[in-house]
Write a protein that binds this DNA or RNA. Structure first.
Length: 1171
RNA sequence: GGGCUUGUAGCUCAGGUGGUUAGAGCGCUACACUGAUAAUGUAGAGGUCCCUGGUUCGAGUCCAGGCAGGCCCA
């Protein structure tokens, strides 16, 4: 067998294409799962992408991360199923369809039927599936594309229903309300994107009030009353631009860390003496400098232009929390009582409170503000709700924008001008104005003024929008909050901070999960209710629905039962219908979407008709339900589900923290009292090279297809993983891929090519059981094998710890710095010289082992190139590896797998990852090789300084050593150093020689611990140490010194002694290491130098003449005394190097070339020797 | 506005538990090397370690407060 040889440069894109074809042809992905049958599983969940847009380069990033760990676990012998999936519901799809049809939500049901509309959504959502599948394959993401779960399929929806029913039965599903933008004029809620239409936010002038809320005196508020005049009432000031919400006030919010002051002053309208609380930073907004000194006594009888005031106390928001106050519009004034009133009218914390405007205290009406609602809910403050004629609770404003009749003197008033009143008419007074007047009269308004601000308006009616409570279905996640938090602590988050921080905080501030969406394309809420809401049913399966419809038909509420399917849906039956059917057309008989489900009416136990609650559910429920719904569980396949729950690993973008990561977690905790995943990686964004977000609009988006084609999938993946840790944002720069390609893959390719070239020449083949025994290997070989074992340990550790970046960097450093640039470079002549000796065989075997192990270690990150390398190295050679055929056929013995042998398999991805053979790790050897590298580097540096090129041999270098260990260590690598830097000997200089000039450096770390503040003086003294003192410290192990009149004893550890100079020598130092170079040139050395130059020039000539490495030649040089002397001494060396059978001199040479070096100019004749 | 996160050489990034002289690769300059050669070696230029305070004998590192970018949420 020959090792395949390739021309440079390798076409990495082609490698990807070729390997991909080979994988497909041989079903390698399938085998990577099937050969692990019966082994422990590693469960991975695919977060479903949406195929309604083209995939971008960031998807390559996210999917590379997923792929890496699945492949790694497979290499460990585990079975990793990867069921793909598609997220198919949701607003983005609806918006896209509307854009394409040129319609709005309003038109649905009018210009286009819901049926047609949903059909369009169904067609649109998978439009880019081909592209996605294509990218998936080309980037080497191994996921099962043939049997994905699809969220719009009836089985999937049915599973969601079953899960919802489980929650319903646990009492975790309830109907409530949320605050949403609402247009009373249009009678409809507005989505946030409708609110973001241009022109919706307009400047309006509204009447605003700073209202006074009277503090109730009790233990909590006592601090506001300390030493105060009993008769003077104390108020909290709060500003609002919507005075009509004041009658619905139930709380006041403060910022916990904001400073507040208590100010004594007067009510500017009634002149009553009062004390008020407001933010310290806003005092100047309401009080003048003059007022600070104005006399209180004179105010009442003055012109009231200057309001006197004095600060009487200062508090933080936290001090104020819990204080109670009197209701502004209470029952005594004819306003209704409400449920939970005893918990209302309290000061609560609000993280949205600022001191930018108003009073730094925010009036809270939970029915008319989203912040208000949330803060009130967290603090247990109720909303003010009143019952209508049917006893149904609602806010004080009805859906048309009027106060309900119970609102005393204001009952029936419009809160904004929704009835088209002429605003310029003399009798026109807004509700805001009337409320303000009433407050003024009662001494409860501190300031009333017109104020211009921006306010959102309905894009259709141009009327102001209200923030209004709208019906919603919720999952009571707060009921399991503690369990959510507890179980989250058992999840391994990568990076950890996302789990404790972003996710942890989110759980701490959890509110109930709002499931409702007023849309068309999504999973319908399976709840039917009677008109009055007193009876309802939650449907958990198609079978149940069918049975309920039968009842309705019997009760003559329905005419017939539209569900024809017998029994419940089954995934098995549907997929058996026909392999070639597209998912979109499967199960066309049954569609659980709108409008079909809306046309189903059921009958309640009391005989009332029940209608489906019109909402769809949040699409995040769809994706959070995938651990169950992908198997059609709980309808069927319990076993499948159990085997694949919870996941060992998931990975998505950090933006999924409150999305998929949360819904998976929430559902798992509520349904299974378990985590949904044990390890999770939240990866960052892919930005352009300048750190800007990529977007098609800016034209800085990178096309993943052209990138992969041009640079190959491996370099692309490697770059993304090696450049930044996945959870950091990646600044994507194509130059970076080029660099990875050149530096890492190029070097690895060169290393392989080098191996292949010579191994083929020698006809060498590695045989696992015919190797040079480890004990007989050279230092160099044992060193790189030791490094290799260390690398295996290290890389496994990084993969195990979900840190692929460090794994990639470790592999990269090993390949470029250790393997290529040291081991191979120093071994070069071992390969191209002479017969297949034991040393040469060892060189091949060592390099072979390194390359094959590298192919395994890199396989998760660069699967194509790893395969390429592995196949090239292994070829058809079945003698490699241990009992390989057996392993592939028999399935890996996971539990007993503990081999440092390389397993032979059809593909590198079917192998078992080697274990580090710790017996081969030799730290002392690694250390002394590093010494060799550093000494060589220093020597090169000295040559450079003295102008002595490496081809000129030198006699010796001197290395001062202070202990026997170093001496022994360097001694063992002397040959390597000599060869590398072209010197004859390494000599050691020990202390006793006395010629070294030494210097000391204080060891601050040690000294600091010992002397603390006196360190400076001690350090200065140490730097002044004389040569005698240094010597004494070295010899006796201590040195007594006096510093500032105090006696100290220094120990050797207190200082670091270095060689500074060696008089008369050329010296270089690197930390504690010093090298001196003997630059004396003897005649013999000069001759050898000449010989080497000659070899070099002849090699160039061979190369230029197009000779192959193995060609033999005859060389004739023109006579020249120095040359002849050199050839005299080094003839055989020269002949061997240049593969010359003869090396002769002739008086005159014509027709040849001329070799030029140093001062020489030599005519030469070079002929290929024919046998 | 809040939570999280990032900020170190022109670029991309390393810098356990604090230690005085902050590193690597790429890029740049110069020289060398040349049977792995689009590789390699040596030397050089290049730094307010985002800013301000604090703790400490000593802060890139710890604490507080800012600034700037990013994500999520309002």
């Amino acid at each position: 067998m020959n090792y395949p040889e390739f021309k440079q440069p390798l076409n990495y894109g082609q490698v990807g294409t070729d390997i991909l074809a080979w994988w497909k042809q041989n079903g390698i992905f399938e085998k990577s799962v099937s050969t692990r049958e019966g082994q422990p599983t590693f469960v991975f969940y695919e977060g479903p992408p949406s195929a309604n847009g083209a995939p971008g380069i960031h998807h390559v990033m996210a999917r590379t991360v997923k792929d890496i760990f699945c492949r790694y676990q497979t290499l460990l012998g585990k079975q990793v199923h990867r069921k793909g999936g598609w997220d198919t519901h949701g607003l983005p799809i609806e918006l896209q369809v509307e854009k394409e049809l040129g319609i709005t939500k309003e038109d649905i049901g009018k210009k286009i039927s819901i049926e047609e509309y949903n059909q369009r959504c169904r067609e649109t959502v998978m439009r880019f599936k081909q592209q996605w599948d294509d990218l998936t394959e080309k980037m080497g993401y191994w996921v099962d594309l043939d049997d994905p779960y699809i969220t719009f399929e009836p089985e999937y929806i049915e599973s969601c229903w079953a899960l919802l029913k489980k929650l319903y039965d646990k009492g975790l599903l309830y109907k409530g309300y949320t605050i949403q933008p609402y247009s009373p004029a249009a009678g409809t809620g507005l989505s946030s994107h409708e609110l973001n239409q241009p022109g919706t936010y307009r400047d309006v002038k509204d009447t605003t009030v700073v209202a006074q809320f009277k503090v109730k005196r009790d233990e909590k508020s006592e601090k506001l009353f300390a030493g105060a005049d009993e008769a003077v009432e104390t108020f909290i000031l709060a500003w609002t631009t919507t005075p009509w919400t004041l009658p619905a006030n139930t709380g006041l919010a403060v910022g916990k860390n904001i400073p507040y002051v208590l100010v004594r002053t007067f009510n500017p309208y009634t002149y009553a003496p009062i004390r008020v609380v407001l933010a310290k930073a806003l005092v100047s907004k309401y009080f003048t400098e003059k007022g600070a000194t104005a006399a209180f006594e004179e105010y009442v009888n003055s012109d009231h232009k200057v309001l006197p005031w004095r600060t009487e106390g200062e508090f933080t928001g936290a001090d104020l929390v819990g204080i109670r106050y009197e209701r502004l519009f209470g029952q005594e004034a004819g306003f209704p009582a409400f449920e939970g009133e005893e918990n209302a009218f309290r000061v609560i914390p609000g993280d949205f409170v600022t001191t930018e405007d108003g009073t730094g205290i925010v009036h809270i009406s939970p029915t008319f503000g989203a912040d208000d609602f949330r803060a009130a809910q967290l603090a247990g403050v109720p909303a003010l709700l009143v019952a209508d004629d049917e006893g149904k609770l609602g806010p004080i404003v009805d859906r048309t924008g009027r106060y309900v009749p119970q609102m005393g003197e204001f009952g029936g008033r419009w809160v904004k001008n929704y009835d088209g009143h002429d605003e310029s008419a003399a009798d026109y007074r807004t509700l805001d104005v009337d409320i303000s007047i009433r407050l003024k009269e009662r001494g409860r308004a501190f300031k009333v003024e017109k104020y211009e601000h921006t306010y959102p308006h309905c894009w259709r009616t141009d009327k102001p929008v209200l923030y209004y409570p709208l019906d919603s279905w919720f999952i009571k996640t707060t009921a399991v909050k503690d369990r959510l938090i507890e179980l989250n602590k058992t999840i391994n988050w990568q990076p950890e901070s996302t789990g404790t921080g972003r996710f942890g905080n989110w759980l701490e501030n959890l509110v109930d999960w709002n499931l409702s969406r007023s849309r068309y394309w999504g999973t319908p809420l399976p709840i039917w209710r009677t008109q009055d809401g007193t009876e309802e049913i939650c449907i958990g399966s198609v079978e149940q629905l069918k049975a309920e419809i039968d009842k309705a038909v019997a009760a003559e509420i329905m005419t017939h039962n539209p569900i024809k399917v017998s029994g419940s849906l089954s995934l098995v039956s549907s997929s058996q219908e026909g392999e070639d059917q597209q998912p979109a057309t499967r199960n066309q008989k049954l569609d659980l979407h709108r409008p079909y489900v809306d046309d189903i009416f059921l009958v309640s136990p009391s005989g009332q008709p029940m209608y489906r609650e019109p909402d769809l559910i949040d699409v995040w429920f769809d994706s959070g339900a995938m651990p169950y719904a992908q198997w059609h569980y709980p309808i069927e396949n319990e076993g499948q589900f159990r085997k694949n729950f919870p996941a060992d690993f998931i990975a998505e973008g950090v933006d999924q923290t409150r999305g998929w990561f949360f819904t998976l977690h929430a559902l798992a905790v509520m349904l299974e009292d378990s985590v949904a995943y044990k390890n999770v990686m939240a990866n960052g964004l892919v930005l352009d090279k300048n750190g800007n977000k990529m977007s098609k609009r800016l034209g800085n988006a990178i096309d993943p297809f052209t990138t992969i084609q041009q640079y190959g999938p491996d370099a692309t993946r490697w770059y993304m993983i090696a450049n930044a840790q996945p959870w950091d944002n990646l600044k994507f720069d194509l130059n970076g891929i080029t660099e990875v390609q050149r530096r890492f893959f190029g070097t690895l390719f060169n290393t392989y090519s080098f191996y292949a070239l010579y191994a083929n020449l020698d006809g060498f083949q590695a045989r696992e059981f015919d190797r040079v025994p480890y004990a007989e290997l050279s230092e160099l070989d044992r060193w790189i094998l030791s490094k290799l074992q260390s690398l295996i340990q290290e890389v496994r550790g990084y993969y195990d710890g979900y840190d692929p970046t460090k794994a990639a960097r470790a592999i990269q450093d090993f390949v470029t710095d250790q393997l290529s640039n040291w081991h191979v470079r120093l071994s070069r002549r071992r390969f191209w010289k002479g017969e297949l000796t034991q040393d040469k065989k060892a060189a091949y075997e060592t390099l072979q082992e390194c390359l094959v192990v590298i192919s395994q270690l890199m396989a998760p990150i660069a699967p194509f190139f790893a395969e390429w390398l592995y196949q090239n190295m292994m070829g058809e050679n079945d003698e490699l590896g241990m009992m390989n055929a057996e392993l592939t056929a028999q399935k890996p013995q996971f539990s007993s797998h503990n081999s440092s042998f390389i397993t032979r398999a059809e593909s590198v991805h079917l192998t078992l990852l080697v274990q580090a053979d710790e017996a081969r790790i030799d730290k002392a050897l690694e250390e002394r090789m590093e010494l060799a590298q550093r000494i060589s580097s220093l020597t090169h540096s000295l040559r450079k300084k003295s102008g002595l090129k490496v081809r000129q041999p030198l006699q010796r270098i001197l290395v001062p050593v202070f202990n026997d260990t170093t001496r022994e260590q360097v001694g063992k690598v002397e040959d390597l150093i000599c060869a590398e830097v072209n010197v004859k000997h390494v000599e050691f200089l020990d202390d006793t020689s006395g010629v070294l000039v030494k210097s000391v450096k204080p060891n601050f770390k040690r000294l600091g611990q010992q002397y603390g503040a006196k360190l400076k003086a001690v350090g200065a003294r140490i730097q002044q140490m004389s040569a005698e003192e240094i010597s004494q410290l070295e010899k006796t192990g201590q040195l007594a010194v006096e510093i500032d009149g105090e006696a100290y004893t220094l120990a050797p550890d207190d200082v670091e002694i270095r060689t500074q100079d060696l008089p008369g020598w050329l010296v270089a130092t690197d930390g504690p290491l010093t090298v001196a170079l003997d630059v004396t040139l003897t005649d013999e050395l000069r001759q050898e130098g000449v010989a080497r130059e000659l070899v070099n020039r002849l090699q160039n000539l061979r190369k230029d003449s197009g000779l192959e490495v193995q060609d033999k030649v005859r060389v004739t040089l023109q006579q020249q005394p120095e040359l002849e002397a050199a050839v005299q001494s080094f003839g055989s060396y020269i002949r061997e190097e240049v593969q010359a059978l003869a090396l002769d001199f002739a008086p005159e040479i014509s027709g040849g070339s001329v070799l030029e070096f140093d001062e020489f100019s030599v005519p030469v004749l070079l002929n290929v020797a024919t046998a």
